[in-house]
């Protein structure tokens, strides 16, 4: 039998309890995260994947980071993305890498990307990971397309705010 019987209260006590509960909260701390000033802290450096063990490493799934010295241009990320968002396209790069004979690397359109991270799962060479940076807004769609050179840059993300809980309620601090 479920404990589904709620206590029946009278009208007056119901109102008094509600007023008490409401006014108690006037003393509690504000929970709001004031975003541009405060930024959330994430676990780790972003979502990564260990192809040997076949398991990901926990982390926020923000924009990607591409390690040029490891990318072989195998297109596995693009093939994976084809059924999902079609955000990844392979483009020619000017620089020469020994392991990348074809000279192609992924270019990601963040206007289409859904940040599922399955491209990271697909990459067998530790070349494509995700980072904490999620602030990608721009004024034009063209700016949302990140070339391999842009993807190689490690973004700065200085999130330091966490949810804290104490007697005066929970707050972001």
């Amino acid at each position: 039998m479920a404990s589904s019987i709620i206590k029946k209260t009278t009208t007056a006590t119901g109102f008094i309890k509600a007023i008490e509960s409401g006014s108690k909260h006037l003393l509690l701390k504000r929970f709001t995260l004031r975003f541009p000033e405060q930024k959330l802290k994430f676990v780790g450096d972003g979502y990564q994947f260990d192809p040997k063990r076949g398991v990901g490493i926990a982390g926020a799934r923000g924009r990607h980071i591409l390690f040029h010295e490891k990318c072989t241009g195998c297109q596995l990320c693009a093939i994976t993305c084809e059924g999902i968002a079609e955000a990844i396209g392979m483009v020619k790069i000017s620089e020469k890498w020994k392991q990348n004979k074809k000279g192609i690397m992924p270019q990601i359109d963040y206007g289409k990307c859904v940040f599922c991270g399955l491209c990271v799962d697909a990459c067998p060479f530790y070349a494509l990971f995700m980072t904490n940076d999620f602030e990608l807004s721009s004024f034009t769609k063209e700016h949302l397309i990140y070339t391999p050179a842009q993807l190689a840059v490690k973004p700065k993300y200085d999130g330091s705010v966490d949810i804290k809980i104490d007697k005066r309620g929970a707050w972001h601090g």
Binding site: H25, R30, F31, R34
Partner: peptide, 13 residues
């Protein structure tokens, strides 16, 4: 502001 405080928000800021 009063409602925001009761609702653990900041209100106009």
């Amino acid at each position: 502001k009063f409602l925001a405080k009761m609702q653990l928000r900041t209100g106009p800021f």
